[in-house]
Write a protein that binds this DNA or RNA. Structure first.
Lengths: 188, 188
DNA sequence: CGAGGCCTTGACCGCGGTCAATGCCCGTGG
DNA sequence: CCACGGGCATTGACCGCGGTCAAGGCCTCG
């Protein structure tokens, strides 16, 4: 996965100035305050958000309960992949966990740009591959680790997450209840 | 997901004859007997397999126990996505569940073809998107359905699977033990 | 006929969920 | 300045889904 990020970075750097500028021009910098929504359920997934500062989470509702599918940090791409790819109403919410600055990219704008600059198709492919790799690793994690090990792994990869994100959200991301997470932390 | 398949099909049909032929030429038709391996752990993921007949499963070992990550049917693409994309040794096995006929595509050959026929990059993107969509839906399924509902859903989408694949494999795919699956079936 | 693979069934257990009570922190208003 | 209320986290009691271990049934194939 790290190698894929490197590949993406390298590829991006190798792009000619014109292509890069076209991309930059398409991006709109926006800020959201803690608690605000970048995308709500039933909205069309018309943008991707490159996070420049702050923390964002994605979640959906499963009979009334929030299921957090992602916790995203600067450098990550916040996007409801299904709604974005299929251009259909989103089942996911995307919400600012802290105040947030993003570079927002319009879907249709990006599609147009791809037909004008075919090199961007390769970039899109690399990014999509990265997303798929992430999903694969997440699936592996959920199938092979118990709640405690998933928590340890999360803290290992994001040491400050506990200071920044409420335990409620973390529990929901890990796939356990708040109570269970609380007990796990108590016995560590 | 169905729409994505349709998109792929349509895109493929819209390709010019030359590009299509180049692809066909790269493909090697091969057969494997029940039980044989299309890919073993630690082998490089150098091929993708378009299944033309038969059933294939993918699995990895988690402290000695098999974890089935996919059951694949004609029309599906059998591939160890991580090993293929990153070109590293595979953690997954790909095994023929029945006698199988596949069209086998070499990774490097396909990469070369993509640089010669840029339209294939778009095809690659569409296929990767499809894989990511599948992973998203699988993740959703594992997080929102209990074992019984997952089983029902599997049977609904593949009514004959029970006749074709051993319950051991099905259980492993569903993420439960053989015993649990047996009890679920007993009470339906 | 015997061996081995595959599945079923039973007894038991533990992880994590549920429900409810309590604690703690902090912002708001009297 | 304190009192109250609400959001978030902790703790306890209890339960059920699914895992584990073990025994036994049923094919199939040699």
């Amino acid at each position: 996965m790290q190698q894929q990020l490197k590949k993406i970075e390298e590829y991006f750097q190798s792009l000619d100035a014109e292509t890069r500028e076209a991309l930059q021009k398409l991006a709109v910098r926006k800020t959201y305050r803690k608690g605000e929504y970048l995308l709500k359920q039933d909205e069309q997934g018309r943008c991707s958000f490159d996070i420049e500062a702050g923390i964002v989470r994605k979640y959906y509702l499963n009979d009334g309960k929030e299921v957090t599918t992602g916790l995203l940090f600067p450098g990550d791409l916040a996007i409801s992949f299904v709604a974005y790819t299929l251009q259909e109403p989103s089942k996911e919410y995307i919400q600012a966990v802290t105040d947030v600055v993003v570079a927002q990219l319009d879907y249709h704008g990006f599609q147009l740009l791809k037909s004008k600059y075919p090199k961007l198709v390769v970039l899109d492919l690399l990014l999509t591959e990265y997303h798929a790799l992430w999903l694969e690793s997440r699936l592996l994690e959920l199938r092979t680790l118990n709640a405690e090990d998933r928590y340890k792994q999360l803290v290992k990869s994001h040491p400050h997450i506990v200071q920044q994100v409420s335990l409620t959200h973390i529990a929901s991301y890990l796939g356990v209840t708040l109570e269970t997470l609380s007990r796990i932390r108590a016995r560590l």
